[in-house]
Design a protein around this nucleic acid. Structure first.
Length: 437
RNA sequence: GUGGAUGUAGCUCAGUGGUAGAGCCCCGGAUUGUGGCUCCGGUGGUCGUGGGUUCGAUCCCCAUCAUCCACCCCA
């Protein structure tokens, strides 16, 4: 080995950007499958947008002074000198695409998306620089019924995943932008009066995002925060009515919720309804799904005034939660049904042809064909380690007789010698009855 | 961006100022076409990376990278 060889540095993944390895991919597919089926059942159509957009899109939608825009975006110049950004969230792109293609012209839209998002944050469990979200957005509907619908959609997902007992719905209303601005002034005035009790972070937020001070985890500030003016007490009448409409619908639908007057979203475009689904099972990254109403965003991006509501959920966090709580059914993990095993090299061709025939006749069956030769002993060991429930053995005796041997790898049961003609029916009966059980 | 902890085989981890071990995994064997249990043998590590101290460092010091936890932020 020369020195130049040893000086080669191993290339590794970018910090905070993870590979999804084969032992976990079935879990993601399970989750994604549930989402796909669910959105379809609610009449939401998928939209796919590029992961790169003009930087201005995010600056104008998320808000110039938010942490996301100020210090967390992956922004770079392309070869033309244009400023581009890897999307830090999905709503802005979704709105841009919907407007650009006339999807919001005199019509309502129910859309969903899924994909990677990018934020340059310090990685932590449940928080990564490339992370994945599923988002749901509804446009052109202003009543609280659509707010309730998207919440019901998310609640059904938790039910189907077995998560209902592990997540809590928190609700709040931010009111109209005018009411919020007036409230913000009152709040700042209150904090100014108690400036001595504010910690360093809160002093910084006093000018950037004073509403977020309410959400502080510092116990020393709790008494002072408890006496602060309440957003709920400063709502405009229309927003109050909207919020009451929403809570009435949720009650009618049997959805439990907690009103959290300190709940504030980090993105500027939210107004009126905001909500979060949280869990205590994930440590400090407990928000698993969050969203709300953003009636002003379309107009802000140059479109006609269009009411809108939506949410995004973090796939890493939800998958982590499913793993932590051991809520993934074995059937979702994609184990093999059948391992087709030529007992020696002479049987290779016949085994391959038989495997192909089975795949044609039984498309649902998960079948792996032994490749790579080896002694019979090592072959059958591999059949065992493959995890398959059944093995189909083909050797000299079987080939001569036009038969195959079906062996049960996971149960105390005599192996069967089957005529190759009857094989398909036997396999079919065995795998379907097993799945129903 | 701030504070703290950690980094030895694919995985989980021992260990010592004189260049390393266990268990699991993987491969082979224990009579001919039957795996799982047991037994035997074997592959595999520049001790995260780069400097420094030292006769000599995996061990001490510094830096760096990565992971984890909390803050910040947020899904």
């Amino acid at each position: 080995m020369s020195k130049s060889d040893s000086s080669k540095k191993k290339i590794q993944a970018i910090r905070g950007m993870n590979d999804l390895l084969p032992d976990r991919s079935a879990l993601w597919q399970y989750f994604e499958g549930k989402v796909q089926a669910l959105t379809q059942r609610y009449g939401y159509a998928e939209i796919r947008t590029p992961i790169v957009e003009q930087t201005a899109l995010f600056a104008r939608s998320i808000g110039e002074v938010t942490d996301i825009v100020e210090k967390e975006m992956y922004t770079f110049e392309d070869r033309n000198g244009d400023s581009l950004t890897l999307r830090p969230e999905g709503t802005a792109s979704c709105v841009r695409a919907a407007m650009e293609h006339g999807l919001l012209h005199n019509q309502t839209q129910r859309l969903w998306y899924q994909g990677p998002m990018f934020r340059h944050e310090r990685p932590q469990k449940g928080r990564y620089r490339q992370f994945h979200q599923v988002g749901v957005e509804a446009f052109g509907l202003e009543g609280p019924d659509i707010d309730a619908e998207v919440i019901l959609l998310s609640a059904r997902l938790w039910r189907e995943l077995g998560l209902s007992d592990h997540v809590t719905l928190e609700l709040n209303s931010l009111g109209s932008s005018e009411a919020r601005a007036a409230y913000r002034d009152k709040l700042v005035a209150y904090f100014e009066q108690h400036r001595d009790q504010l910690d360093e972070d809160s002093l910084r937020r006093l000018t950037s995002n004073p509403l977020r001070i309410l959400d502080s985890k510092n116990p020393d500030m709790a008494p002072m925060l408890a006496d602060a003016p309440k957003l709920m007490d400063h709502l405009d009448d229309a927003s109050r009515e909207h919020f009451e409409g929403l809570t009435a619908l949720l009650q009618a639908a049997g959805i439990d919720y907690v009103i959290n007057p300190r709940l504030v979203r980090g993105l500027d475009y939210y107004g009126r309804t905001v909500f979060e689904w949280t869990t205590t099972a994930l440590g400090s990254q407990g928000t698993v799904c969050a969203g709300g109403r953003y009636d002003g965003l379309v107009e802000q991006l140059g479109g006609k005034p269009t009411p809108a509501v939506g949410f995004a959920m973090g796939i890493e966090r939800l998958v982590l939660l499913l793993e932590t709580l051991e809520l993934v059914p074995d059937a979702a993990l994609g184990e093999l049904d059948l391992y087709v095993l030529p007992m020696d090299d002479v049987a290779t061709t016949q085994a391959m042809l038989l495997a192909e025939r089975i795949r044609s006749e039984l498309p649902e069956l998960r079948l792996q064909l032994h490749c790579g030769g080896g002694s019979f002993k090592s072959r059958i060991k591999k059949a065992d380690r493959s995890g398959a429930r059944l093995a189909l053995l083909l050797g000299e005796d079987e080939l001569d007789a036009g038969r195959a041997t079906l062996k049960f790898l996971r149960e105390e049961r005599e192996q069967m010698s089957l005529d190759q003609g009857a094989l398909i029916d036997t396999l079919a009966s065995m795998t379907t009855s097993d799945e129903r059980a």
